[in-house]
Simulated assay, not measured.
Amino acid sequence: MRIALVCTEKLPVPPVRGGAIQTYIDGVLPFLSARHDVTVVGRTDPALPDREAVALAGPSLPQGRAGGGTVRHVRLPAEGGAESYGDRAAAFLATERWDVVEIFNRPAFVERIARAAPGARLVLSLHNAMFAPHRLSPAEARRILARVDAVVTISDFIRGSIARLYPEYAGKLRTIRSGVDLERFRPGPSPQSEALRARLGLAGRPVVLSVGRLSAKKGIHVLLEAMERVLLTHPEAVLVQVGSRWYGRDDADAYVQAVRQQAARLGDGVRMVGYVPYHEVDAYFRLGDLFVCASQWEEPLARVHYEAMACGLPIVTTDRGGNAEVVEEGRNGLLVRPCHRPEGFASAIQALLDDPDLRRRLGAEGRRMAEESFSWERVAREQLAVLEG
């Protein structure tokens, strides 16, 4: 089959600047391209050519050819925002014939792509609550859901939010949770993580790790307030916060400035690392002793949970949105309820710092869960079942 994967206008594929959707696409490409002719339509980036064909090495699904295949990348300008980019994507698709087009996180593209690729099966892949009423009117939503052949969501939370609004289309919805590179993200230190530990002055100190963008909905301010309490009982602990306001940049808005001032008051108890390229972020996971996600919003299901599990880290997270679908209380992590109370985070962090055996047990179970359920091979197998109809 000839398959087109249409990424959003936000970030390029491969994920040279990060991005959950971009990482998802990149993770399944070796498996999809082993069986089909795959083209990725994405945005341009200074680090990448506008057109290229990439031969992918790697394993295939049992029914596929040995090794990966060749993937074509067609990168289009993102100037003018989503609407202009969507028009460019549709114009490109109209120049060739497609068997299947999978559209990532942009339901608004569906109708124009349907016109551009007549006869193609259309699959909509949702990584956020894109059918919320403030995003799409009921009339628009029903037209889109009627036009697509299937809707893939990354969590039951996202799937359920659509099914509740439009129950007549529930049969088109399927959850396919994301995955993680189990070789890159694995338990134990690496040469890179040990070098980071030395550079950041972390020798002999328990590391509380957080990886995420610096925005109010990600709750970094709540975690920093929690660390004030943690440092009273565990002054040797240190929070390592990886992330910036947006992928690929370290400029500061008012929130980031406030968070940096808050962190400065904790002195040696915090390292604000800033933006880290995605190909380097695994080294930070491998120097952590526990992982914290302080989401304050209805998180679709943050992919950092998969990465922390793969690295054998016990997880402290909120039950907002889809997070609790992969983090079970007392099995591979601890859940903080309600999410806005820093004392809840402090108590969970202190419990893990006080009990090395608990940390090891939760972390080991997380790695086992990642190996069993969250490989890219599993994601690709389920995605192929949808694409192949």
Rank of each mutant, 00 (worst) to 15 (best):
M227F: 06
L182A: 06
G201C: 08
R205L: 00
E225G: 00
L165K: 09
Q192P: 10
R184Q: 14
A163H: 07
K217M: 03
R184K: 12
K217Y: 04
L202D: 08
G160P: 02
E194M: 04
I176N: 14
S190N: 11
P189T: 08
G171V: 04
G160W: 01
P167G: 11
E194P: 00
L173V: 15
A203V: 05
P167K: 07
L200W: 03
A198G: 05
H221S: 02
G188N: 07
G179Y: 12
E194S: 00
L209G: 05
A216K: 13
P189H: 07
A163Y: 01
P167S: 09
K218H: 02
S161K: 10
G212D: 03
D181C: 10
D181K: 11
R177P: 01
L202K: 09
H221A: 01
R159G: 02
Y169N: 10
L173F: 11
S161H: 04
G160Y: 02
L200M: 01
A216R: 15
A198C: 03
Y166W: 08
P206K: 10
A195K: 12
M227R: 13
V211N: 11
R174L: 12
G204Y: 11
S193I: 10
A198Y: 03
E183M: 12
S210G: 05
G204S: 10
P206M: 03
A195S: 13
S215G: 07
L165A: 12
S190E: 13
V180I: 13
I158K: 00
H221F: 01
R199A: 15
P206S: 05
K217G: 08
R164A: 11
I220T: 13
A170R: 15
K217I: 04
L200K: 04
S210P: 02
E225Y: 01
I162T: 04
F185I: 12
K217R: 13
Y166N: 09
L223K: 03
K217S: 06
S178H: 14
E194W: 00
R177N: 11
R164Y: 01
I158F: 00
G188R: 03
S178K: 12
P191V: 01
I176Q: 10
G188V: 10
I158G: 02
V180Q: 05
R213Y: 00
G160Q: 10
L224S: 04
L173I: 14
